[in-house]
Design a binder for these strands. Structure first.
Length: 228
DNA sequence: GCGTGATCATGG
DNA sequence: CCATGATCACGC
């Protein structure tokens, strides 16, 4: 980690959705290097040791406030910030992490009240071109997308969530893999495969298992892009 | 250790 | 080729 990033500047949080949107429009077409300079950060040459850099850069530039709380980044506005890496062909390159999977929840869950939905209900997408042929400082930010799931999106997301959380709550952790779910999938979310946390066994008892997260498939974020 | 930000690296 | 499973850094 370079010294410049430790001392980087934070932007004041936007007070309204319109203000956030205006800021997002202002940075469209900027390079990561230009943006980083405005908040005294330095763009890494590769992301092997700084995978979250671009997300943290955009949090600073746009004035996100939630830190590591399980809340939308712009808490007062209820808006989640997500960067979206695109291949040079304009398609999403990676899945999008959304939230941690609550592996110990035994209570009946409500879709509209779950952490996952609270983040999915309103997202500011910031696409950028992930081009291995260029140094990351020259990668360009694209046009922002302020998105909420359509009724059809929500129906699929909710069905995926119900299927996946059904397995979690029934203690069927060993049946969960990233192939399940049409738009949403569950994948490991930890420093490494040895990390353990508590989950539910098939008799409702506590078992040790790996932490997992909910991710949106690239095929779904591609639909969001195509529609915008 | 957990949740935030994600991308890496390899097997199918 | 690309999705799955694995991995990296930070704040607290």
């Amino acid at each position: 980690m370079c010294q410049g990033n430790k001392n980087s500047v934070k932007t004041f949080p936007p007070e309204t959705e319109a203000e956030l949107w205006a800021r997002a429009l202002l940075i469209a077409q900027c390079t990561l290097g230009d943006l980083a300079a405005t908040v005294s950060m330095t763009v890494p040459k590769d992301f092997r040791r700084e995978k979250g850099f671009i997300g943290q850069l955009l949090e600073r530039v746009l004035g996100a406030t939630a830190g590591n709380l399980s809340k939308p980044d712009f808490t007062q506005l209820g808006i989640e910030l997500k960067t979206l890496p695109l291949n040079p062909n304009g398609q999403p390159k990676e899945s999008t992490y959304v939230s941690i999977v609550p592996l110990m929840s035994r209570d009946r869950l409500s879709w509209r009240n779950c952490d996952l939905y609270q983040k999915l209900r309103h997202i500011l997408w910031i696409p950028y071109c992930f081009d291995k042929a260029l140094d990351p400082e020259h990668w360009r930010i694209g046009s922002p997308i302020l998105w909420s799931p359509s009724a059809e999106d929500e129906a699929v997301l909710r069905a995926d969530w119900e299927e996946l959380m059904g397995l979690v709550q029934m203690g069927q952790l060993d049946q969960i893999n990233a192939r399940l779910g049409e738009y949403l999938q569950i994948r490991p979310k930890a420093m490494n495969a040895k990390v353990r946390t508590e989950g539910l066994g098939n008799n409702g008892e506590c078992v040790r298992t790996s932490p997992r997260g909910f991710y949106l498939r690239p095929s779904f974020t591609a639909k969001i892009l195509a529609r915008s």
